[in-house]
């Protein structure tokens, strides 16, 4: 279990941007073993900063990161897999050698790294490109190599900063499959993304960060329950003024009147609608993660 506890980080001003910037303002969350954790938030909310602190690439001003109750150190981080926001690979190095090199740096034996590289290249559809220099690959394929670098040593925790950006739908599915596989093996996976439908589809838990604080966290279902669903009623050709006194707003589309509201007595609304005209639709809309997100960061 990974625990992020009250992280704070302030960037001092520089000649280019003289004002100091508070990037993290006491962010806390936990990720359980085998959990896929979606990390969402507006641009500049502090996702990358948090991940860099977990990876030890940045130092927090205060707060702690612990794994199974112990503060994490360099030894733990060697067993993590990390895909940074700004991708970085040796452009002139060959794909296979690059993956093997990082595996060795993570402490793998030459034989083990060879096998792991073969498997990953196979899984990510890069076997034919093994001996190509990275710079000869398309951006999306370079991203697959970057992922392979993060996965080669069978990490016990995965931290991926926007791993899906720039991938085609097929590559997204391939990557999603790989991540789900690792996750089922008990590895906690944290990834940030702006593709909320994807997060909704893949993640067990979601954390919404805004201005350096965690404003909502939990399972997608849990967040939905907390967020009252919106009631949507469609009435065909109702008597005018039928919705007077009811909560919510009415929009008119031809002879259809659409009432949207949250809260209020749904049974009373139904009675009024039936009296007013022909009810074509009556139901609670599930809030999407996008709705929850907009609500949370508002």
């Amino acid at each position: 279990m990974l625990e992020i506890n009250e992280l704070r980080k302030r960037f001092a001003g520089s000649p280019g941007s003289p004002v100091a910037k508070i990037a993290l303002d006491g962010i806390s969350f936990t990720v359980r073993p085998g959990e896929m954790f979606g990390f969402v938030g507006a641009n500049g909310a502090g996702k990358t900063t948090t991940m860099r602190i977990v990876m030890g690439v940045l130092q927090a001003d205060s707060g702690s990161v612990s794994l199974r109750g112990e503060p994490i150190g360099p030894g733990d981080r060697r067993r993590f897999g990390y895909m940074p926001e700004e991708r970085g690979l040796y452009q002139k190095m060959r794909v296979g050698e690059q993956i093997e090199y990082f595996g060795r740096l993570h402490g793998m034996s030459a034989a083990a790294v060879k096998k792991a590289t073969d498997d990953l290249l196979e899984q990510l559809g890069l076997t034919e490109r093994r001996n190509d220099a990275v710079q000869a690959l398309s951006l999306g394929n370079q991203q697959r190599v970057q992922l392979a670098v993060a996965l080669v040593h069978d990490p016990e925790l995965l931290i991926l900063d926007e791993p899906f950006s720039g991938l085609d739908p097929i590559a997204v599915d391939a990557l999603a499959t790989v991540l789900q596989e690792r996750c089922r093996g008990g590895v906690p996976v944290i990834f940030s993304s702006h593709q909320l439908e994807l997060v909704e589809r893949l993640c067990d838990s979601v954390g919404i960060v805004s201005a350096g604080r965690m404003v909502a966290a939990g399972t997608v279902a849990g967040l939905r329950a907390a967020e009252a669903g919106e009631l949507r009623v469609v009435v065909r050709d109702p008597a005018p003024g039928w919705a007077d006194g009811l909560p919510g707003t009415v929009t008119v589309d031809g002879d259809r009147h659409i009432l949207r509201c949250t809260g209020g007595d749904d049974q009373e609304i139904l009675r009024r609608a039936v009296k007013a005209g022909r009810v074509e639709h009556f139901g609670a809309e599930q809030p999407s993660l996008t709705d929850i997100f907009k609500e949370a960061v508002a």
Binding site: M55, V57, R78, Y82, P84, G88, L89, Y90, Q91
Partner: peptide, 17 residues
């Protein structure tokens, strides 16, 4: 500079000192 500019350091330094 190659490693810094391409941000490879970020992965490298999460593995080695």
């Amino acid at each position: 500079v190659e490693e810094k500019g391409s941000r490879i350091v970020e992965i490298l330094l999460s593995t080695v000192r």
